[in-house]
Design a protein around this nucleic acid. Structure first.
Lengths: 174, 174
DNA sequence: TTGTATTTTCAATCATTTTTGAAATACCTT
DNA sequence: AAGGTATTTCAAAAATGATTGAAAATACAA
């Protein structure tokens, strides 16, 4: 397999992964392209590499900047903007967690909290069962949220060290 | 807020959550409906509750069964099938992890492994940089995969206990 | 077996999301 | 300020994904 072919494969895989997780496929592809690009790219270069229109490239580059995954720079004597991605993959993961937590986890937690407290008539069995369900779900989503909060504050080495410890203790237990 | 209104809110929220994470919105809504339903429901009842067609209900119920989140039963003297969801939310989470790992994480890992090994010409600086990028990504995705593997084997109490310990150690460190 | 209730399938339709491309805007440089 | 890039916007078009509904298949009971 040649380099170009491998890059293409990587971009496709990253795009599919994003798509499966509710991220615009093209946005993920642009991200992939910049992740493996040794130097920063102009909008035109992104358009050419992925065969997408100027508008599309612009929208997705801006979205990536919004997500904190991509930045732009200017080159001396050149009017164009050049884009590059954060390469440290642990930082990328943290940034993705930060954004998804903010955009999708927090709103759900808020709704679950509302639902938990709203219903006063605890005598009704059906109400009781519903509130209990919601409490259980809120509980586990809250735990996941706390865990992710640790992850985004954690140093990579500490974090994986802690996970490995967790794993080894588990093994002993079995 | 009345019970019916609260249920409706919950179903909408669960549907939106699924949709944001690449799960068919209706499938997530059907799941939500069954999660908070005290008794099992026929296809007809699901159709009526969510205002969806028979075909749609059938497809999504079958998908949920496929995911291991819903089962069906028969009632004496009734020809219809009745559907009910696994209520233990930790089990639900584990099942979701199992499926997404199988469907989406494993294939990506496979591709990353292929890309890592495929390129022999290590003298070329560009090739070297690419392989290094891929290795880093493979590394972190692999770690995530291992962690999820622990989660799906773990007892709920042990798992959250371990997370809390992790958290408290982190706090001391700071 | 026959008739009836129920489930499944899937081509056609509908809805949503994504993309395009050209006009408008912003940005430089002189 | 003018002239030439480059970027942004957004209505319309295209592509994709979801839903319908009716026909076919299946399951059951008598």
């Amino acid at each position: 397999m040649q380099l170009e072919e491998a890059k293409e494969k990587f971009i496709q895989a990253w795009g599919a992964l994003g798509s499966n997780w509710g991220i615009n496929r093209t946005m993920a592809q642009v991200h992939a392209l910049l992740l493996i690009s040794p130097n920063s790219l102009s909008a035109q270069e992104v358009m050419d590499a992925l065969n997408i229109s100027r508008g599309n490239a612009n929208m997705n580059l801006r979205a990536l900047i919004d997500w904190g995954l991509v930045s732009k720079e200017h080159k001396a004597g050149d009017r164009k903007e050049y884009f590059f991605a954060e390469k440290d993959i642990w930082q990328v993961a943290q940034q993705v967690i930060i954004e998804r937590r903010k955009r999708e986890l927090k709103p759900v937690l808020k709704i679950l909290e509302d639902l938990k407290t709203m219903e006063g008539d605890q005598k009704d069995e059906e109400v009781k069962a519903f509130v209990e369900s919601v409490e259980n779900i809120h509980n586990i989503v809250g735990q996941a949220d706390k865990f992710l909060e640790i992850a985004i504050k954690a140093d990579r080495n500490w974090f994986f060290g802690a996970l490995i410890k967790m794993f080894s203790r588990k093994s002993k237990q079995e």
